[in-house]
C-alpha cells in the first residue's frame, strides 16, 4: 500500500516538474504545447477514495496554474477530468471496470488509447475554453484543442507504455 502512495507522490512531482520546465516551453509551431501532467490523473489508483482523488487533482492543476500564471484554468480542467473519469473508464474498458480489476500495466493498448484520447480531448477543451474565455473565438479553441490533444495523446501513450514494467 505504501509503495502505491510513494509511487504516486513521485509521479506527481516528476510530472509537475517536466510539465512546467520542459513541456510549457515547447511551443511547437508557435502555440502547441503538450499537457502531460494529466497522466497522473489517468493513472491514479482506481480504488482510492474519490474525494482524495478530486482534491489531489485540484492541487496538481493549481500548481501548474501557479507556475504558468494562468489563473485557475488548469485546476478547473483537471478537476473536471478527475470527476468524469469513472464514465471514461466505463466507456473504454467496459466489463473490466465493472469488476474493478483494471491494471493499467496489463490492459489492451487499444482500450488504453481510447481512454486517454477521450480524457485528453475533454481536458483540453475545458482548458482552452477557459483560457481564451470568449465564445466568439470558438474556432481558435477547437484548433488549439485538436493540435494540443494530438501532441498530448502521443506523448502520454508513449510515456505510459515506456514506464509500465510488466507489459506483455
Amino acid at each position: 500500500m505504501n509503495s502505491v502512495i510513494g509511487a504516486n507522490i513521485v509521479r506527481f512531482i516528476a510530472l509537475l516538474l517536466v510539465q512546467v520546465v520542459i513541456c510549457n516551453n515547447i511551443n511547437f509551431l508557435g502555440y502547441i504545447n503538450p499537457y502531460i501532467y494529466i497522466i497522473f490523473i489517468f493513472l491514479f489508483p482506481i480504488r482510492e477514495n474519490r474525494l482524495i482523488f478530486l482534491l489531489v487533482s485540484f492541487l496538481l492543476g493549481m500548481m501548474v496554474d501557479m507556475f504558468s500564471d494562468s489563473g485557475g484554468v488548469h485546476a478547473a480542467a483537471a478537476v473536471c477530468l478527475a470527476y468524469s473519469r469513472p464514465v471514461l473508464l466505463k466507456t473504454s474498458f467496459g466489463m473490466l471496470y465493472e469488476h474493478q480489476t483494471i491494471k493499467f500495466s496489463n490492459t489492451e493498448v487499444g482500450s488504453l488509447i481510447t481512454y486517454i484520447t477521450l480524457g485528453t480531448v475533454l481536458h483540453h477543451f475545458i482548458l482552452f475554453s477557459l483560457e481564451i474565455f470568449n465564445i466568439s473565438n470558438i474556432l481558435l479553441i477547437l484548433k488549439k484543442t485538436l493540435f494540443s490533444s494530438i501532441f498530448t495523446i502521443l506523448l502520454s501513450v508513449l510515456i505510459i507504455i515506456l514506464f509500465s514494467r510488466t507489459r506483455k
Partner: peptide, 15 residues
C-alpha cells in the same frame, strides 16, 4: 466537492 473545487477554479479564472 467537485462543484466546490470547480467553482474555486472558475472564480480564479474569471478573476
Amino acid at each position: 466537492l467537485f462543484l466546490l473545487l470547480f467553482s474555486i477554479a472558475l472564480a480564479l479564472t474569471i478573476q
